[in-house]
Amino acid sequence: MSISDNLRFFQQQLEGSGCRLVTVTKTHPVEKLQEAYAAGARLFGENKVQEMAAKQPELPTDIEWHLIGHLQTNKVKYIAPFVHTIQSIDSLKLLLEIEKQAAKHNRVIQGLLQFHIAAEETKTGLTLPEAEEILQSEALRGLRHVRLTGVMGIATNTDDEARLRQEFGELRSYFGQLKARYFAEADDFREISMGMSSDYQLAIAEGSTLIRVGSAIFGARNYGAAV
């Protein structure tokens, strides 16, 4: 199937679900991204700052760029002029750097708090107490150029549906607790980013509002390809 066929399939899958598709474009060349754009994709997700910064000028300006990989504070400045959402906020230090760099460009960047929900220790993310420590910080009250709009998590790479449901349910629970305690009046705190090519159906069933899909749209990634 073609990229446009695959996108059409996901658009049909998501119809009426309240969930949106983030088309994960990492390692894929600009030509493939242009094909996805022509087929209606507007939310593009990249793992690496360098790759996102290289592709962004080559593509239409109405694309909503999401950084979904781990982000070092010293690299925020490279994407601050254009990134829409940083899904991988895992420290107060990073949040403050996003504020600083967004202010330089007089714009607001949206962000999701990334939680550790997987069994694998290699996956990064916050615990609930760590997230609450950030949200209770005095420094947070001064933020004007970064807006927290939800949570993100990466589930265990497994075929065990019960485990996946448990992990997705855990993230949904974290969202609910933060919403009630800190964002009850914030209508834009509404995103739960979870689910990828292999487990998106379970994620949607558990309340995902953003699924991150790459290989099911573009095919296998070519990690040796140049940007």
Rank of each mutant, 00 (worst) to 15 (best):
M196L: 09
V108C: 11
T85C: 15
E121G: 01
I86R: 12
G195S: 11
E120W: 08
V151R: 04
L143Y: 12
I79A: 08
G207H: 04
A186C: 09
V146P: 05
G176P: 00
R190P: 02
A102R: 06
K123F: 03
Q110Y: 14
I86W: 05
E121D: 13
I109C: 11
I98W: 11
R144D: 12
D159R: 13
L164W: 07
I217Q: 04
M152F: 01
I117E: 00
E185F: 01
K93D: 15
Q101A: 10
I109L: 10
N106G: 13
R190K: 10
H105E: 12
E191C: 04
P129Q: 12
V146R: 02
D188T: 10
L210A: 03
E130K: 13
E167L: 10
R172W: 06
G207P: 05
Q201Y: 09
T156C: 02
S198W: 10
L135C: 11
T122D: 10
I98Q: 02
D199T: 10
N157W: 10
G150R: 01
E132L: 14
P129Y: 11
L135V: 00
A180T: 13
R141L: 12
D187G: 06
E120C: 01
Q177L: 15
G111A: 15
L92F: 04
Y200T: 08
K179D: 01
